[in-house]
């Protein structure tokens, strides 16, 4: 079907896509996890009530989430250039991916942490636990299965975003699909990149759900 060069290109694209997706997810969690955690613990009746801060953070997250990713890609180019030195290629795509995914992840983390039974937090307080101990020993471990489900959803969403970055020369499979499949009307390449992307999503989803299930002690 394809010559070796094409296969090599597709292989490279796959590696680029995986790199962008996984690296961006990791970086986005570095930002999004603390943001999600803060959203929960600064609520009125939680362990660190800061209502004004909570409202401000929530508004900022909503604002960032309401900007379409394609527009976001273009808008953050100056920031990308400042950090990476270029706006083209996989590494350059990581910057908008992280900035777009972090608020999304913050919301995912928020909903996971909120699943933790307030009674358990109260029990920890009755034992003299500090706020930090409640976060590290109660909130995060108890929410872990749900956090892993959230991470699975996030990683597949970011994979989709990374393909979109192909429109602005972002590298990876999306880039190949657009340059060869779309601009050159090469249906075969288009199809094969889509198939690879579908497979990657399936595999990531399956792995994530398995980890989440084995880590969940809430059911027998």
């Amino acid at each position: 079907m394809f010559d070796t060069t094409t296969w090599l290109m597709l292989g490279e694209g796959l590696i680029d896509t995986l790199y962008m997706t996984l690296f961006s997810t990791a970086m986005a969690y570095l930002l999004g996890l603390p943001m999600g955690l803060l959203l929960v613990i600064t609520e009125k009746d939680s362990i660190l009530p800061l209502p004004a801060f909570n409202t401000a953070l929530s508004v900022i997250i909503n604002l960032m989430r309401s900007i379409p990713f394609l527009i976001f890609l273009v808008w953050v180019m100056p920031i990308t250039r400042a950090i990476v030195g270029t706006t083209i290629g996989s590494t350059a795509t990581v910057v908008p991916l992280v900035l777009a995914a972090a608020p999304f992840i913050a919301r995912m983390v928020e909903s996971s942490i909120k699943e933790v039974d307030p009674g358990v937090i109260e029990a920890a307080q009755s034992m003299g636990a500090t706020r930090a101990q409640i976060v590290w020993k109660v909130l995060l471990p108890e929410a872990m299965p749900s956090l892993i489900v959230g991470a699975t959803i996030s990683v597949t969403t970011i994979l989709g975003y990374s393909a979109m970055a192909g429109f602005v020369g972002g590298g990876g499979l999306g880039d190949i699909a657009i340059r060869f499949g779309y601009y050159r009307y090469d249906d075969e390449i288009m199809l094969i990149t889509v198939i690879i992307l579908v497979l990657v999503v399936q595999i990531l989803q399956e792995i994530g759900m398995r980890i989440a299930n084995t880590s969940d002690r809430r059911k027998n």
């Binding site: 039974d117 009674g119 358990v120 109260e122 029990a123 009755s126 034992m127 109660v138 471990p141 108890e142 872990m144 299965p145 880590s215 002690r217 809430r218």
Partner: peptide, 12 residues
């Protein structure tokens, strides 16, 4: 302190 709903850590 003990509680009506036990409040055990489910992941432990």
């Amino acid at each position: 302190m003990i509680f009506q709903q036990f409040n055990l850590l489910m992941q432990r």
